[in-house]
Design a binder for these strands. Structure first.
Length: 276
DNA sequence: ACCCGTGTTCGCTG
DNA sequence: TCAGCGAACACGGG
């Protein structure tokens, strides 16, 4: 489920669950998401997590064990999530790794589709990892630098919606936030990225910030991390303005109908009347 | 049965 | 050389 807001929520939950507690056991199933292999997490035994960062959709945790630092890099892919359970409880479905914490709880990494990633980073040297170095600025923690964004977009022939999914441009914008941001900015997702003028990039930057802020605010209201953490409550109404609303009347103009198209293999939703 | 999917990477093509 | 595209990954839900 995770785009930037969901991953930020996961970061806050993990911080709350793991801060100042010691890892008493760490297990990992044989699975392609655990790197480099099933024994990858064993060095975390007796370590204590003290830093909980997020860059785009990546969670970067740091633990200390004596003089040693261990990094844990977690990317949730499409279906990854972290859950907390009492030590006596059964493991959740699709659990791929677990960290048993002092104090009697277990943190489970669960991932049905196995598109995620869980990797130990020796010495917590995240700065040495090429995939992380390649990430663009994070709209929530770094803000959006409009002149820089426009300069980057000017070099791209791809449609603006497709460009927004490139994590080298901005880290954390995913398929939902891309549609939502463009809707807020009143920009047609099919426009060539290089064709956006200054004013439009400014509107887009505002759209991105507000769309992320709105989603995060909703999570803060509706989703806690007391026990397990549910990204989307079962049967909850769609919280987004256009995403997954094909065929519905646009809430802004009340005239046109939201359209679904496919770009680069992904669904895009927009209002043909409000977005140009 | 069939299609769809909040992500990323790889290989092919023009 | 490189942007762009489809496929692949894996599996449940509508």
């Amino acid at each position: 489920m995770p785009e930037l807001p969901e991953v930020e929520l996961a970061r806050r939950c993990l911080q709350k669950w793991a801060s100042k507690r010691r890892v008493t056991a760490a297990t990992a199933a044989r699975s392609r998401v655990i790197r480099p292999g099933p024994r990858a997490l064993e060095p975390l035994r007796d370590a204590t997590f003290f830093r909980f960062e997020r860059r785009g959709k990546n969670l970067l945790l740091t633990a200390r064990k004596g003089a040693q630092l261990h990094g844990l890099w977690s990317h949730l892919g499409m279906t990854g999530k972290w859950l907390r359970r009492p030590v006596a409880a059964e493991a959740p479905r699709f659990a791929r790794a677990s960290l048993t914490m002092s104090g009697g709880s277990v943190l489970y990494y669960c991932d049905m589709r196995l598109f995620g990633r869980l990797q130990l980073v020796p010495g917590a040297r995240f700065e040495d990892i090429p995939e992380l170095r390649a990430l663009g600025p994070d709209p929530l923690t770094d803000g959006v630098d409009v002149p820089r964004l426009r300069q980057r977009l000017a070099a791209l022939r791809a449609p603006i919606k497709v460009a927004l999914l490139d994590q080298r441009l901005l880290a954390g914008v995913g398929n939902i936030q891309a549609s939502e941001s463009l809707y807020r900015a009143g920009i047609d997702p099919r426009r060539r990225a290089s064709d956006l003028d200054d004013k439009e990039v400014r509107r887009l930057a505002t759209g991105i910030r507000r769309s992320i802020a709105a989603t995060l605010a909703r999570f803060e209201r509706d989703v806690g991390c007391e026990e397990d953490m549910a990204y989307v409550e079962e049967g909850a109404p769609n919280p987004f303005a256009v995403y997954d609303r094909a065929g519905e009347t646009c809430r802004r103009c009340r005239r046109a109908v939201i359209v679904r198209i496919v770009q680069a293999g992904r669904a895009t939703y927009f209002c043909p009347h409000c977005q140009h």
